[in-house]
Simulated scan of single mutants.
Amino acid sequence: MSYVNPPDFVGKMIDAGESKATMSTRDTLIRAYMAGAILALAAAFAVTITVQTGNALLGAVLFPVGFCLLYLLGFDLLTGVFTLVPLALLDKRRGVTVRSMLRNWGWVFLGNFAGALTVAVMMAVVFTYGFSVDPNEVGQKLGEIGHSRTVGYAEHGAAGMLTLFIRGVLCNWMVSTGVVAAMMSTSVSGKVITMWMPIMLFFYMGFEHSVVNMFLFPSGLMLGGDFSLADYLVWNEIPTVVGNLVGGLAFVGLTLFATHARTGKSRLMLPDDVAAAQPAEKREGANA
């Protein structure tokens, strides 16, 4: 599998964050657009499998194919840049500023949304024969998902909003672990295996991924879901984005950076080290 040690792959994380923060707008948008489109296709694939087989676990097991493809192709998801770019800022990499970080996040968000929306329109056409008939079984399921994961949260008020936020945190804890996992190996098979596990976990557990939702909810609206655009934004997308930011940065990026890039001093000191750490006058008294 060609395993890469944590201090080494954390260095790769910081390098990746620097590269993304300083990337041209053109390249950022292209890579984000393709990432959103591929992840949307994977979500459509997983929902289709779940509906046709009645087995949600099988859909979750196969969903990571899209995630693995987009990362092997070098495309960018909002959930990944939330975790990687701040590390380059903390490491004081040249050209990485708060402004460049926010710029990257903004363009990646727009690119992901455009890619996911493109696939949402295409799949809505497929599920309805160009909007000439009612949605098929998979299309109806997409409408139901949109309703349950917007209005369903709203029915619980503040408790629903808290649940939505926590699901967003848990999601990017796992998704960003998948992003980092790709850096733990130098072989394609190793990268795929390590990415697959956390992505499968987040999808099966029903955690909230901002980019996946950029496909699920617009397609649900087009396919007759009983919720509104405002429901989608207020009771899903915005809280999910915030939760994804907190989850990826707090539980993956900052923890790895703190313990592997900014490692604390060891408590085990050799005798020579102890002597060197003593005040000069104490060392002179010991030598007298």
Score class of each variant (00 low, 15 high):
D273N: 06
V179Y: 09
A114M: 11
F257L: 12
H156W: 04
H156P: 00
D272P: 02
L229G: 02
D15A: 14
M197E: 05
T118Q: 04
T255D: 04
L73Q: 03
V192F: 05
V121Q: 09
T25F: 12
G285K: 10
A116Y: 05
E208Y: 02
W196Y: 06
A114L: 14
V138N: 02
A124E: 02
L268Q: 13
V211F: 02
M34Q: 09
F131H: 12
Y71D: 08
P198T: 12
M123V: 09
A182E: 09
G160V: 06
L268R: 11
M123A: 12
L233K: 12
G74L: 14
R149V: 14
L270I: 10
W107K: 04
I238L: 13
A44K: 01
D8Q: 07
P86F: 06
K282I: 10
N104S: 15
A230W: 00
M195H: 03
M122P: 00
L102R: 12
S185M: 03
F67N: 01
V51Q: 08
T118C: 10
M222Q: 00
K12A: 10
G11W: 01
T150K: 06
G206K: 01
A114G: 00
R149S: 14
W196N: 00
F207G: 01
F202Y: 10
G80R: 00
M184L: 09
F257A: 02
I145F: 01
D91E: 12
T97H: 06
F203K: 00
V125S: 13
G143V: 04
I193F: 07
A154L: 11
M222F: 03
T240P: 00
K282R: 14
Y232F: 15
D272G: 13
A275V: 10
S148K: 10
Y204K: 00
V242C: 08
L89G: 12
S19A: 14
V169H: 05
L233N: 15
L216C: 01
M23N: 10
R149Q: 15
M13D: 13
R267Q: 13
Y71M: 10
V126T: 14
S187L: 01
A288Y: 09
L102T: 09
Y33M: 08
V10Q: 02
A21P: 07
P279F: 03
T128S: 12
V85P: 02
L142Q: 01
P271Y: 03
N112P: 04
A16P: 00
A21N: 04
V234K: 08
V175M: 10
Y33D: 05
D91T: 03
L170Y: 05
N287I: 08
F217W: 08
G247S: 12
V4R: 03
E18V: 05
F165V: 11
L268C: 03
V138E: 07
S266H: 11
L70D: 05
G143N: 11
L110K: 03
V234E: 05
V241R: 09
